[in-house]
Design a binder for these strands. Structure first.
Lengths: 236, 236
DNA sequence: CGCCTGTTTGAGAGTGTTCAAAACAAGTGG
DNA sequence: CCACTTGTTTTGAACACTCTCAAACAGGCG
């Protein structure tokens, strides 16, 4: 049973979508869902293709990419576990969805998923709330892209990553160094922030020189001065 | 009856929201709706306030503004007639909503609107589809803000405005000049595109010098070379 | 007419990009 | 173990673009 994999425990606070819907809806999801593994770099949905599948992300990170002919591309959204993938209702996909890490999906045919939305009112409401939240995130990102400097963008990004990756809950200790691995390469960070690789790298170097972060090597990063970092996230 | 004002004609292809929902839902909307007039510059919802009202726009244009302390602001969305205003479900408003022109709204209390969403499944689906569309628009705009030059931004904006304002249907005549009034000031255009007033003005001047547009005066604009304009919208 | 608001134009400065090369890390095969 | 490849990150210098500051211009209204 798929439900065993996805929602093995009814009581645990599961971040995945199925935990937030009711039992009956979860059962309905399971009946139409198909488990799918994708590996890093693999594209799940191509922009321009007819939208035929929906799903939700179980593990890994996907990116939504807007791009034109010859390379100018921009990541317009990141999908984390529990997020919906794709869009219901007919039409062409607006953006290409690609795995940034190996990922696991629970995939539904779009038609089946739409039937489910109709039959299970709670599911439609959940999707609506998710979509409203995604819209707010996208609009905040518009502000970031349009009105902040490279220094603010990178600092803000690192803060976001800290709260998402170093999931040590709400640490009260502002002065304790936190170390974690950035899940994105410099290039991918540049794609998210609307910058170039070089600019991202330079900003990182500046932060390191200012004693705000350390870069032990590889993807690792240590935040040594959260307050200083936050100060740089709001003003140059 | 409010319905007389909003949806006087059942058969005409009415762009407003009520035309796209079914009779019963429209009737339900009317019972909870309150007509409201706002004048240019008036703010309907303040960012950070508890979300207590929803509505839909009957006429005029509203802007969604993201801003921080001291003036750096960015328009993250425009609302046109038929669009939903505000968001259902508890929480604080993320963005300030202000009228850019005199406008007419049909306002519902958030609670009443939520009840309606529950009772009328079609309404919830409509709102979901609208929200998905708004999300796509926001993401496309992210691409524009992050990866296009000022010249491309302004050219693209003028094309959008042409198709929206000069509502002469789908003109097959690419070479016929089109004239219309821009609904936004230079400053407002700058806020939408993430530029400054001066840069917008300069780009307009360049387009005029290139013989692509004419600026007869006031808010008026004439597109004399749609093809040239579109060429500039995709590449510098 | 003066005032107010919005637009245009100019000159200079700052920021991020582009192009280019070096440094670094990790994996492969000799 | 070492050369060699491949891919990423860092660093540098020059350039281009947009912003900032500042002033001139145009129209609407008391």
């Amino acid at each position: 049973m798929l439900s065993m994999d996805i929602c093995a425990d009814d009581t645990a606070p599961d971040p995945r979508v199925c935990a937030s819907v009711m039992r009956s809806e979860r059962a309905a999801l399971d009946t139409i869902g198909r488990y799918k593994n994708v590996s890093r770099g693999e594209t799940v949905i191509w922009a321009g293709d007819e939208s035929t599948i929906c799903g939700n992300l179980l593990s890994g990170v996907l990116k939504l990419v807007a791009c034109t002919t010859q390379g100018r591309e921009q990541i317009v959204g990141l999908l984390y576990p529990a997020d919906f993938v794709g869009q219901p209702y007919p039409g062409r996909a607006e953006f290409t969805i690609t795995a940034m890490t190996d990922a696991e999906l629970c995939v539904y045919s779009r038609r089946a998923f739409e039937r489910l939305l109709t039959d299970q009112a709670g599911m439609e409401r959940l999707l609506l709330q998710r979509t409203l939240a995604a819209l707010n995130i996208a609009r905040r990102q518009m502000w970031t892209l349009a009105r902040t400097s490279a220094a603010e963008k990178v600092a803000g990004f690192l803060i976001d990553m800290t709260s998402r990756t170093a999931s040590s809950g709400c640490r009260a200790t502002y002065d304790a160094p936190v170390t974690f691995d950035l899940p994105l390469s410099r290039g991918q960070i540049a794609d998210v922030l609307g910058l170039t690789i070089q600019t991202v790298s330079r900003q990182m170097t500046h932060l390191k020189a200012a004693g705000i972060i350390r870069l032990p090597g590889g993807r690792a990063i240590t935040i040594t001065d959260s307050i200083g970092l936050e100060a740089r996230a709001v003003a140059a």
